[in-house]
Design a protein around this nucleic acid. Structure first.
Lengths: 158, 158
DNA sequence: TACTATTGAATATCAAAGATGGTCAAACCG
DNA sequence: CGGTTTGACCATCTTTGATATTCAATAGTA
Protein backbone atom coordinates (compact mmCIF):
# COMPACT_ATOMS: atom_id res chain seq x y z
CA UNK A 1 0.00 0.00 0.00
CA UNK A 2 1.49 3.25 -1.17
CA UNK A 3 1.72 5.90 1.52
CA UNK A 4 -0.39 9.00 1.24
CA UNK A 5 2.65 11.24 1.34
CA UNK A 6 3.73 10.04 -2.07
CA UNK A 7 0.35 10.78 -3.60
CA UNK A 8 0.19 14.20 -2.06
CA UNK A 9 3.68 14.99 -3.24
CA UNK A 10 2.85 13.85 -6.75
CA UNK A 11 -0.36 15.82 -6.74
CA UNK A 12 1.36 19.04 -5.78
CA UNK A 13 4.06 18.48 -8.35
CA UNK A 14 1.44 17.94 -10.99
CA UNK A 15 -0.05 21.30 -10.06
CA UNK A 16 3.34 22.83 -10.70
CA UNK A 17 3.53 21.49 -14.22
CA UNK A 18 2.53 23.67 -17.13
CA UNK A 19 5.42 25.97 -16.49
CA UNK A 20 3.79 27.54 -13.47
CA UNK A 21 6.46 28.61 -11.08
CA UNK A 22 4.09 28.56 -8.14
CA UNK A 23 0.72 27.38 -6.89
CA UNK A 24 -1.52 28.30 -4.05
CA UNK A 25 -3.40 25.61 -2.19
CA UNK A 26 -5.61 25.54 0.83
CA UNK A 27 -4.42 23.20 3.45
CA UNK A 28 -7.81 22.13 4.74
CA UNK A 29 -9.19 21.66 1.28
CA UNK A 30 -6.25 19.50 0.25
CA UNK A 31 -6.52 17.49 3.43
CA UNK A 32 -10.18 16.92 2.82
CA UNK A 33 -9.47 15.82 -0.72
CA UNK A 34 -7.01 13.22 0.53
CA UNK A 35 -9.07 12.44 3.61
CA UNK A 36 -6.25 13.03 6.01
CA UNK A 37 -5.33 15.32 8.85
CA UNK A 38 -4.37 18.84 7.76
CA UNK A 39 -1.05 18.46 9.47
CA UNK A 40 -0.30 15.72 6.99
CA UNK A 41 -0.09 18.38 4.31
CA UNK A 42 2.31 20.33 6.45
CA UNK A 43 4.36 17.20 6.88
CA UNK A 44 4.63 16.58 3.16
CA UNK A 45 5.63 20.16 2.51
CA UNK A 46 8.26 20.17 5.18
CA UNK A 47 9.84 16.92 4.11
CA UNK A 48 9.67 17.21 0.31
CA UNK A 49 9.39 20.82 -0.64
CA UNK A 50 12.32 22.33 1.15
CA UNK A 51 14.82 24.75 -0.35
CA UNK A 52 17.20 21.84 -0.82
CA UNK A 53 14.56 20.28 -2.99
CA UNK A 54 14.28 23.51 -4.90
CA UNK A 55 11.13 24.96 -3.36
CA UNK A 56 10.12 27.57 -0.88
CA UNK A 57 6.86 27.76 1.00
CA UNK A 58 4.99 30.82 2.14
CA UNK A 59 1.64 30.86 3.82
CA UNK A 60 -0.98 32.98 5.42
CA UNK A 61 -3.40 32.04 8.18
CA UNK A 62 -6.86 33.23 8.94
CA UNK A 63 -9.78 33.75 6.62
CA UNK A 64 -8.75 33.36 3.02
CA UNK A 65 -5.51 31.79 4.13
CA UNK A 66 -3.39 29.76 1.73
CA UNK A 67 -0.14 27.96 1.25
CA UNK A 68 1.98 28.98 -1.67
CA UNK A 69 4.53 26.58 -3.09
CA UNK A 70 7.19 28.27 -5.19
CA UNK A 71 9.57 26.36 -7.36
CA UNK A 72 12.95 28.00 -7.52
CA UNK A 73 14.32 28.53 -10.97
CA UNK A 74 17.78 27.31 -11.41
CA UNK A 75 20.50 29.77 -12.11
CA UNK A 76 22.96 27.06 -12.79
CA UNK A 77 26.43 28.31 -12.15
CA UNK A 78 25.77 30.51 -9.19
CA UNK A 79 23.72 27.93 -7.41
CA UNK A 80 26.40 25.31 -7.89
CA UNK A 81 28.92 27.61 -6.33
CA UNK A 82 26.57 28.21 -3.45
CA UNK A 83 26.14 24.49 -2.93
CA UNK A 84 29.86 23.89 -3.02
CA UNK A 85 30.88 26.76 -0.83
CA UNK A 86 28.04 27.17 1.59
CA UNK A 87 25.45 24.47 1.63
CA UNK A 88 27.86 21.59 1.93
CA UNK A 89 29.87 22.45 4.94
CA UNK A 90 32.38 20.05 6.31
CA UNK A 91 29.54 17.68 7.10
CA UNK A 92 26.28 16.74 5.45
CA UNK A 93 23.65 14.07 6.04
CA UNK A 94 22.59 11.51 3.50
CA UNK A 95 19.11 12.99 3.51
CA UNK A 96 20.32 16.44 2.65
CA UNK A 97 22.64 15.10 -0.02
CA UNK A 98 19.74 13.24 -1.50
CA UNK A 99 17.68 16.40 -1.73
CA UNK A 100 20.50 18.32 -3.36
CA UNK A 101 21.20 15.63 -5.90
CA UNK A 102 17.54 15.28 -6.80
CA UNK A 103 17.29 18.96 -7.31
CA UNK A 104 20.26 18.94 -9.67
CA UNK A 105 18.50 16.33 -11.72
CA UNK A 106 15.17 18.14 -11.66
CA UNK A 107 16.78 21.31 -12.88
CA UNK A 108 18.59 19.49 -15.68
CA UNK A 109 22.07 20.05 -14.41
CA UNK A 110 22.81 16.33 -14.39
CA UNK A 111 21.20 13.35 -16.09
CA UNK A 112 19.23 10.75 -14.23
CA UNK A 113 22.05 8.24 -14.47
CA UNK A 114 24.50 10.78 -13.15
CA UNK A 115 22.21 11.51 -10.24
CA UNK A 116 22.02 7.81 -9.48
CA UNK A 117 25.79 7.53 -9.53
CA UNK A 118 26.09 10.41 -7.14
CA UNK A 119 23.54 8.92 -4.79
CA UNK A 120 25.42 5.66 -4.83
CA UNK A 121 28.67 7.42 -4.05
CA UNK A 122 27.30 9.17 -0.97
CA UNK A 123 25.10 6.34 0.25
CA UNK A 124 25.50 4.85 3.67
CA UNK A 125 26.86 1.62 2.20
CA UNK A 126 29.48 3.43 0.18
CA UNK A 127 30.66 5.54 3.07
CA UNK A 128 30.95 2.84 5.60
CA UNK A 129 32.47 4.64 8.55
CA UNK A 130 31.64 5.42 12.17
CA UNK A 131 28.88 8.00 12.33
CA UNK A 132 31.33 10.57 13.58
CA UNK A 133 33.20 10.53 10.26
CA UNK A 134 30.44 9.57 7.91
CA UNK A 135 28.90 12.95 7.29
CA UNK A 136 32.26 14.62 7.05
CA UNK A 137 33.49 12.28 4.37
CA UNK A 138 30.22 12.48 2.51
CA UNK A 139 30.64 16.23 2.36
CA UNK A 140 34.02 15.90 0.78
CA UNK A 141 32.95 13.29 -1.76
CA UNK A 142 29.91 15.28 -2.74
CA UNK A 143 31.91 18.46 -3.04
CA UNK A 144 34.42 16.88 -5.39
CA UNK A 145 31.62 15.69 -7.61
CA UNK A 146 30.01 19.10 -7.66
CA UNK A 147 33.33 20.69 -8.51
CA UNK A 148 33.59 18.31 -11.41
CA UNK A 149 30.13 19.30 -12.60
CA UNK A 150 30.95 22.97 -12.22
CA UNK A 151 33.95 22.50 -14.45
CA UNK A 152 31.70 21.35 -17.26
CA UNK A 153 30.02 24.71 -17.39
CA UNK A 154 31.96 26.10 -20.35
CA UNK A 155 30.66 23.70 -22.95
CA UNK A 156 26.98 22.96 -22.46
CA UNK A 157 25.79 26.27 -21.11
CA UNK A 158 22.67 26.32 -23.24
CA UNK B 1 13.25 -31.45 6.31
CA UNK B 2 14.05 -28.72 3.83
CA UNK B 3 14.97 -25.46 5.50
CA UNK B 4 12.69 -22.51 5.13
CA UNK B 5 15.47 -20.42 3.65
CA UNK B 6 15.41 -22.48 0.49
CA UNK B 7 11.69 -22.05 0.02
CA UNK B 8 11.86 -18.34 0.60
CA UNK B 9 14.75 -18.03 -1.79
CA UNK B 10 12.90 -20.01 -4.43
CA UNK B 11 9.77 -17.98 -3.90
CA UNK B 12 11.56 -14.69 -4.41
CA UNK B 13 13.30 -16.00 -7.46
CA UNK B 14 10.00 -17.08 -8.90
CA UNK B 15 8.77 -13.54 -8.46
CA UNK B 16 11.72 -12.40 -10.52
CA UNK B 17 10.77 -14.60 -13.44
CA UNK B 18 8.88 -13.15 -16.35
CA UNK B 19 11.80 -10.98 -17.24
CA UNK B 20 11.18 -8.55 -14.42
CA UNK B 21 14.45 -7.03 -13.35
CA UNK B 22 13.10 -6.25 -9.91
CA UNK B 23 10.33 -6.93 -7.42
CA UNK B 24 9.05 -5.21 -4.35
CA UNK B 25 8.00 -7.24 -1.34
CA UNK B 26 6.85 -6.45 2.14
CA UNK B 27 8.89 -8.05 4.82
CA UNK B 28 6.07 -8.61 7.28
CA UNK B 29 3.74 -9.91 4.64
CA UNK B 30 6.30 -12.37 3.35
CA UNK B 31 7.11 -13.48 6.87
CA UNK B 32 3.46 -14.05 7.58
CA UNK B 33 3.10 -16.05 4.41
CA UNK B 34 5.91 -18.34 5.47
CA UNK B 35 4.96 -18.20 9.14
CA UNK B 36 8.36 -17.17 10.28
CA UNK B 37 10.02 -14.25 12.02
CA UNK B 38 10.44 -11.16 9.83
CA UNK B 39 14.15 -11.24 10.44
CA UNK B 40 14.19 -14.54 8.64
CA UNK B 41 13.45 -12.66 5.45
CA UNK B 42 16.32 -10.35 6.15
CA UNK B 43 18.51 -13.36 6.67
CA UNK B 44 17.60 -14.91 3.34
CA UNK B 45 18.19 -11.65 1.53
CA UNK B 46 21.54 -11.11 3.14
CA UNK B 47 22.78 -14.59 2.42
CA UNK B 48 21.34 -15.33 -1.01
CA UNK B 49 20.67 -12.03 -2.70
CA UNK B 50 24.01 -10.32 -2.40
CA UNK B 51 25.99 -8.74 -5.24
CA UNK B 52 27.97 -11.97 -5.34
CA UNK B 53 24.79 -13.65 -6.35
CA UNK B 54 23.94 -10.90 -8.75
CA UNK B 55 21.42 -8.91 -6.76
CA UNK B 56 21.13 -5.68 -4.85
CA UNK B 57 18.60 -4.79 -2.23
CA UNK B 58 17.05 -1.44 -1.43
CA UNK B 59 14.39 -0.76 1.12
CA UNK B 60 12.33 1.83 2.84
CA UNK B 61 10.90 1.79 6.34
CA UNK B 62 7.76 3.25 7.82
CA UNK B 63 4.23 3.17 6.53
CA UNK B 64 4.13 1.86 2.99
CA UNK B 65 7.64 0.50 3.39
CA UNK B 66 9.02 -2.19 1.13
CA UNK B 67 12.04 -4.22 0.16
CA UNK B 68 13.12 -4.10 -3.45
CA UNK B 69 15.17 -6.90 -4.91
CA UNK B 70 17.00 -5.91 -8.09
CA UNK B 71 18.62 -8.46 -10.32
CA UNK B 72 21.84 -7.17 -11.82
CA UNK B 73 22.16 -7.52 -15.53
CA UNK B 74 24.89 -9.63 -16.96
CA UNK B 75 27.33 -7.03 -18.15
CA UNK B 76 27.01 -5.57 -21.55
CA UNK B 77 30.30 -6.33 -23.18
CA UNK B 78 32.25 -5.64 -20.07
CA UNK B 79 32.37 -7.80 -17.03
CA UNK B 80 30.78 -5.55 -14.48
CA UNK B 81 29.94 -8.31 -12.07
CA UNK B 82 33.49 -9.52 -12.17
CA UNK B 83 34.74 -6.05 -11.41
CA UNK B 84 32.34 -5.70 -8.53
CA UNK B 85 32.88 -9.05 -6.94
CA UNK B 86 36.49 -9.85 -7.67
CA UNK B 87 38.57 -7.05 -8.96
CA UNK B 88 37.58 -4.53 -6.35
CA UNK B 89 38.46 -6.21 -3.13
CA UNK B 90 38.07 -4.50 0.16
CA UNK B 91 40.80 -2.14 -0.87
CA UNK B 92 41.84 -0.54 -4.13
CA UNK B 93 44.33 2.12 -5.15
CA UNK B 94 43.45 5.27 -7.02
CA UNK B 95 45.53 4.06 -9.93
CA UNK B 96 43.58 0.82 -10.23
CA UNK B 97 40.28 2.64 -9.89
CA UNK B 98 41.35 4.90 -12.68
CA UNK B 99 42.03 1.92 -14.89
CA UNK B 100 38.64 0.42 -14.22
CA UNK B 101 36.81 3.66 -14.83
CA UNK B 102 38.65 4.33 -18.06
CA UNK B 103 37.88 0.86 -19.25
CA UNK B 104 34.19 1.41 -18.60
CA UNK B 105 34.29 4.57 -20.62
CA UNK B 106 36.25 3.02 -23.44
CA UNK B 107 33.82 0.17 -23.70
CA UNK B 108 30.88 2.56 -23.74
CA UNK B 109 29.39 1.47 -20.47
CA UNK B 110 29.46 4.97 -19.08
CA UNK B 111 29.60 8.40 -20.68
CA UNK B 112 32.55 10.67 -20.38
CA UNK B 113 30.78 12.87 -17.86
CA UNK B 114 29.89 9.85 -15.79
CA UNK B 115 33.47 8.69 -15.84
CA UNK B 116 34.58 12.11 -14.66
CA UNK B 117 32.10 12.01 -11.83
CA UNK B 118 33.36 8.64 -10.75
CA UNK B 119 36.95 9.79 -10.82
CA UNK B 120 36.02 12.78 -8.72
CA UNK B 121 34.29 10.54 -6.19
CA UNK B 122 37.29 8.27 -5.70
CA UNK B 123 39.94 10.94 -5.95
CA UNK B 124 42.39 11.57 -3.19
CA UNK B 125 40.76 14.90 -2.38
CA UNK B 126 37.33 13.33 -2.03
CA UNK B 127 38.54 10.52 0.16
CA UNK B 128 40.58 12.48 2.54
CA UNK B 129 41.60 9.86 5.08
CA UNK B 130 44.73 8.32 6.52
CA UNK B 131 46.30 6.00 4.00
CA UNK B 132 45.29 3.01 6.07
CA UNK B 133 41.61 3.71 5.40
CA UNK B 134 41.81 5.46 2.08
CA UNK B 135 41.95 2.48 -0.21
CA UNK B 136 39.36 0.61 1.77
CA UNK B 137 36.85 3.39 1.51
CA UNK B 138 37.62 3.94 -2.14
CA UNK B 139 36.79 0.32 -2.76
CA UNK B 140 33.42 0.67 -1.17
CA UNK B 141 32.55 3.90 -2.93
CA UNK B 142 33.60 2.51 -6.28
CA UNK B 143 31.71 -0.69 -5.69
CA UNK B 144 28.48 1.11 -4.91
CA UNK B 145 28.78 3.09 -8.09
CA UNK B 146 29.39 -0.03 -10.13
CA UNK B 147 26.43 -1.71 -8.47
CA UNK B 148 24.35 1.24 -9.51
CA UNK B 149 25.52 0.91 -13.08
CA UNK B 150 24.85 -2.79 -13.06
CA UNK B 151 21.29 -2.23 -11.95
CA UNK B 152 20.46 0.29 -14.62
CA UNK B 153 17.51 -0.50 -16.80
CA UNK B 154 18.23 -2.23 -20.04
CA UNK B 155 17.65 0.51 -22.55
CA UNK B 156 20.71 1.71 -24.32
CA UNK B 157 22.25 -1.70 -24.84
CA UNK B 158 23.86 -0.83 -28.12
C1' DT C 1 -15.51 58.26 12.08
C1' DA C 2 -12.06 55.98 14.54
C1' DC C 3 -10.65 52.59 17.53
C1' DT C 4 -10.85 48.29 19.93
C1' DA C 5 -12.75 43.85 21.17
C1' DT C 6 -14.64 39.66 19.56
C1' DT C 7 -15.20 35.91 16.65
C1' DG C 8 -14.53 32.62 13.10
C1' DA C 9 -11.40 30.85 9.79
C1' DA C 10 -7.41 29.41 8.53
C1' DT C 11 -2.39 27.58 9.25
C1' DA C 12 1.64 26.00 12.58
C1' DT C 13 3.58 23.07 15.96
C1' DC C 14 4.57 19.20 18.46
C1' DA C 15 4.23 14.99 20.57
C1' DA C 16 2.21 10.48 20.48
C1' DA C 17 0.77 6.47 18.06
C1' DG C 18 1.16 3.43 14.10
C1' DA C 19 3.64 1.00 10.49
C1' DT C 20 7.46 -0.70 8.55
C1' DG C 21 12.17 -2.60 7.97
C1' DG C 22 17.15 -3.41 10.44
C1' DT C 23 20.42 -5.43 13.86
C1' DC C 24 22.26 -8.60 16.75
C1' DA C 25 22.88 -12.15 19.80
C1' DA C 26 21.14 -16.32 21.53
C1' DA C 27 18.88 -20.67 20.80
C1' DC C 28 18.26 -24.34 17.77
C1' DC C 29 19.33 -28.18 14.74
C1' DG C 30 21.68 -31.39 11.68
C1' DC D 1 30.75 -26.51 14.08
C1' DG D 2 27.97 -24.10 10.56
C1' DG D 3 23.76 -22.75 8.81
C1' DT D 4 18.91 -21.57 10.42
C1' DT D 5 15.35 -19.51 13.27
C1' DT D 6 13.64 -16.57 16.69
C1' DG D 7 12.82 -12.55 19.54
C1' DA D 8 13.94 -8.39 21.83
C1' DC D 9 15.19 -3.89 20.81
C1' DC D 10 16.23 -0.13 17.49
C1' DA D 11 15.67 3.33 13.53
C1' DT D 12 12.90 5.53 10.28
C1' DC D 13 8.82 7.15 8.05
C1' DT D 14 3.80 8.13 8.27
C1' DT D 15 -0.54 9.58 10.30
C1' DT D 16 -3.34 11.72 13.63
C1' DG D 17 -5.03 14.92 17.13
C1' DA D 18 -4.73 18.38 20.59
C1' DT D 19 -3.32 22.95 21.23
C1' DA D 20 -1.36 27.37 19.80
C1' DT D 21 -0.98 31.18 16.66
C1' DT D 22 -2.33 34.42 13.14
C1' DC D 23 -5.38 36.92 10.18
C1' DA D 24 -9.76 39.12 8.31
C1' DA D 25 -14.11 40.60 9.12
C1' DT D 26 -17.41 42.31 12.03
C1' DA D 27 -19.51 44.14 16.04
C1' DG D 28 -19.39 47.40 19.62
C1' DT D 29 -18.42 51.93 21.56
C1' DA D 30 -17.49 56.77 22.28
Amino acid sequence: MKPLTDSIEAFIKSLLEEGQAQVDVQRNELAQYFRCAPSQITYVLSTRFTPDHGYVIESRRGGGGYIRIVRLRESRGSNLLYLINKRIGDSISQRDSEAIISQLFTSDVVTENEARLMRAAVSGEAINLPVAFKDALRASVLRQMLLEIASRAEEDDS
